[in-house]
Nucleic acid binder design. Sequence first.
DNA 1: GAGTGGTCTAGACCACCCT
DNA 2: GGGTGGTCTAGACCACTCT
Lengths: 243, 243
Amino acid sequence: MRKLRLAPDENGAPLYARVKANVLARITGGDWPPGTALPAEMELARELGVSQGTVRKALDALTAEQVVVRRQGSGTYVAEHTPAHMLFRFFNIYDESGAQVLPDSEPARVSTGEATATERRRLELEAGARVIRISRIRTRAGRAFMDDRIVLPEALFPGLDQEAEVPNTLYDLFQKRYGIHVARTEEQVTAVAATARLAERLDVKPGTPLLAIDRVTYDLSGRRIEWRLSHAHLERAHYFARL
Amino acid sequence: MRKLRLAPDENGAPLYARVKANVLARITGGDWPPGTALPAEMELARELGVSQGTVRKALDALTAEQVVVRRQGSGTYVAEHTPAHMLFRFFNIYDESGAQVLPDSEPARVSTGEATATERRRLELEAGARVIRISRIRTRAGRAFMDDRIVLPEALFPGLDQEAEVPNTLYDLFQKRYGIHVARTEEQVTAVAATARLAERLDVKPGTPLLAIDRVTYDLSGRRIEWRLSHAHLERAHYFARL
DNA sequence: GAGTGGTCTAGACCACCCT
DNA sequence: GGGTGGTCTAGACCACTCT
């Protein structure tokens, strides 16, 4: 019987799944920061006592989930999430020519407080948990077009409210400063009439139809790490989804 | 040199890609209708003169694209698109509890005519091409909530305008009657104010914010087979997207 | 040229389904 | 019990990258 440096739980899970979990743990644990080259497949296979094919299957899965990037002839690297890349990946607004809208962000207001019932529900927090709230306007060609209200569990992002400035893309800050890797988002989209507050912030008439985007963001281990409510006034632009 | 009954084009494309193309062609060509069991992996491998592992990789890809379904111990089957399944897969509206909304459909109006410039652009049709236009209301719990205007190239769906009744789910009709397999959709979502026409059809006040969903549907070979413009009045429901 | 990922093969054993 | 897909191994050759 070979000894494995994998999950001690030998029941059920196939080998490649345990290899995948092992590699993922070392990435999220910070052993291999973004941009690092992983050991070669053969070396990982030797280290873990499995065949190269099994390592390959695990790395294929991590590649599909965009945790890792493979470069033929060079190596396998922990996916690097540059600010531009993160915007590109999670900002779903496109203009009429099909090009992605790349928004700017105005200085934000940041505060902290005890989570409301709605915030606790959306972020699956315990009663009494505290949150960081960020409010900002996004602009496009110099004009306000999107109002963001972002809520984060304070326990996951201690000190974030002390930042001098909130960057245009929060998600790479999450990764670089807090080691929290954004994995996926779920968005609920509806059409709403502009309230007085939104009308003023987006410079439209009250009652103007706006797109409301309610987003929950998950990290690689499945934790809810952000709740974001955006209201957008889209002129010659649209929300895009592929199914 | 082994002789392959695969694509004669030997350059570039890996073997498994040619196996995949071969199997896909036999499915879309009607040799294996939906629900049919494919030959076993070993048998396909023998027939095509490749190893089982290569066939497996091809079938894995077709499984990921939902062209085929695998049942351990039983076999690999051409994906069967029941009406309920098609609704489930391509209808993106969910209620507040997270359950998918399953709409009903009222009798539709069907007509044909020469494609307008917009219709030609969205469906990539030649000048002079003819289209079938379907207009219908979808209901939810007995109340109108969505107005659909559907445009199809007549060349792909001859005689569809003569149907006695338009089914609630068109997509499985496409597959069963015309052998056209829906592969994916692209949707552009915006918020608009209800026009007089939409207000009357959806029983809301003019100016009410509606969700406008502009969808182009592609078949397995990448052809555009449908353009659909839906306007929805969503109460306690939302459009859902996972990214 | 050495090292990496990408493809392909051949064969083994297992878990599961069907009859 | 026989057939199927699911997993795993070992080894080969290729295409690419780096230096």
